[in-house]
Design a protein around this nucleic acid. Structure first.
Length: 424
RNA sequence: GGAGAAGUACUCAAGUGGCUGAAGAGGUGCCCCUGCUAAGGGCAUAGGCCGCUCUUAGCGGCGCGAGGGUUCAAAUCCCUCCUUCUCCGCCA
């Protein structure tokens, strides 16, 4: 959520910056009117309340002195009715204004390229050499099905499309990656480890920005106002919701493993085969809480930590600075890390590293105090995948595949694989 | 799932309609006393959000788990919900 005072005072400027996102901003036009109406109603109602408080203090005195208070009480009854009707009106305006504010996306940072679609994303850097094959590179779903380490068919029977069973060394590989990534970030990058709830309430999803606008993307539990998490970002960021942290507490950095659940509404027909777009997948997520002045340095650090996973796995990748059209609703700046997928002859997103500045913190109420007598300020929140595990499995299968259909296990994973060096 | 109890500030806690922005204690900070320590004494310590104004400040509104209601007036009375605890049931 944007700062209402800032929006009021810099309306034209904010609007111009939001327009680069290419989203419909017609809602935004109602802001001025609602904001003004709200403040007018508050002023009216509160001056009546001040009067009521004042007169109500006199009533017991009048009574004590044996004077008649009926006329005053009658007058206050009318004042009370007037207050009630103003407050009703105010409540309606405020809920409209809140809906509006919750639907306005974040302002892109000045270092974000202005663009119209994903073709305008800028490559920041590139790492690693594409593997050369003396044979036609196979897609990971064929490799895995042949090795009998992934079973999409039976998952479709047991649940439905976009689900998978990991089997044998496939399951082992997924678990090895989880442990490798968690160890790397916890032991070497200095993150505190966390295992969050997989189910969250409406307020948490509103805090991180998935709700109210993107309700069709998340799974909701029947008869409960609870949702399956689409990413550990949601529980971990909201961990400090409605709290005021001490200056010395910051920065805070967490690494969380979780299952992730996404409805993939609107993705029908895209990536229907393989591990790329599943309703359920595992992910190791990095979440930072920083002081405002540190968040852009932190974004670089966070992205670096995610890249390190790919470098140790020796998987080629590139880093993209996402343009205004491809930023996502909540981010002020976002780097996507894309891993090379030989069979598709293309790079695919494997991590998204974003700085939300105070956008999520304002929604979730995450603040800190610089000094004991200072006003609290909103923290900046950031997160990034470090990494999506299913997609990493897919990338390993495709980049490490051999002519005979086996797959070499990346060296760093072998200790986690009971010493196995090849999937066969 | 059933029965009961509780939620007031950093902590504990008093408070059944106006004199309560809220007693008291602990904690914390500063000061006094003391050769040092212990003990003692004094002072300070309500955050936060919102609105207005002549914006290094002032004024007003809200706030006692959350939201409604009753009342001229609610921490206090009523309703709904949430959380925690105890017992029973169920369960990995």
């Amino acid at each position: 959520m944007l700062d209402m005072k800032y929006l009021r005072n810099h309306f034209a400027d904010v609007k111009a910056k939001l327009q680069h996102r290419g989203e419909d901003l017609s809602e935004l036009e109602h802001f001025g009117e609602l904001d003004e109406k709200r403040r007018k109603l508050i002023a009216e109602s509160e001056s009546l309340k001040a009067k009521r408080n004042d007169v109500s203090k006199q009533i017991p005195k009048l009574k004590k002195e044996g004077k008649d208070a009926d006329a005053v009480i009658q007058e206050m009854r009318e004042v009370g009715d007037k207050i009630a009707s103003l407050d009703d009106e105010l409540k309606a305006i405020e809920s409209q204004l809140e809906q509006l504010m919750l639907s306005i996306p974040n302002i892109p940072h000045e270092s974000v390229p202005v663009g119209e679609d994903e073709d305008d994303n800028e490559q920041v850097r590139k790492w690693g050499e594409h593997p050369e094959f003396s044979f036609k590179a196979q897609p990971h779903w064929d490799i895995a099905t042949d090795l009998d380490i992934l079973d999409f068919e039976r998952a479709a029977k047991v649940t439905g499309s976009r689900f998978v069973f990991y089997k044998g060394l496939g399951a082992r590989l997924e678990r090895a990656l989880m442990n490798f990534m968690m160890d790397l970030h916890a032991d070497e990058h200095g993150y505190e480890e966390m295992l969050p709830p997989y189910i969250v309430n409406r307020m948490s999803l509103t805090g991180t920005g998935q709700l109210p606008k993107f309700s069709e993307d998340v799974f909701k539990l029947e008869d409960w106002d609870y949702f399956l998490i689409p990413t550990a970002e949601v529980p971990v960021t909201n961990y400090y919701g409605d709290e005021i942290l001490q200056s010395a507490d910051l920065p805070k950095k967490y690494v969380a493993f979780s299952g992730c659940f996404r409805s993939e509404a609107g993705s029908a027909g895209r990536d229907t085969r393989g591990l790329i777009r599943q309703h359920q997948f595992n992910k190791v997520e990095l979440v930072h809480f920083t002081k405002p002045e540190d968040s852009y340095d932190t974004l670089e650090e966070l992205t670096e930590h995610a890249e390190e996973v790919l470098r140790r796995l020796k998987l080629p990748y590139r880093v993209m600075n996402m343009c205004t059209a491809d930023l996502g609703f909540t981010a002020a700046k976002k780097y996507d890390i894309e891993v090379w997928m030989p069979a598709q002859n293309t790079y695919r997103e494997i991590s998204s590293c974003s700085n939300f500045e105070d956008f999520q913190a304002r929604r979730a109420g995450i603040r800190f105090r610089r000094e004991a007598d200072k006003k609290p300020e909103f923290v900046h929140t950031l997160n990034g995948s470090g990494l999506a595990i299913g997609r990493t499995v897919a990338a390993i299968l495709e980049n490490y595949q051999q002519k005979d259909g086996t797959v070499i296990v990346p060296e760093v994973l072998r200790p986690y694989m009971g010493g196995k060096d090849v999937l066969r």
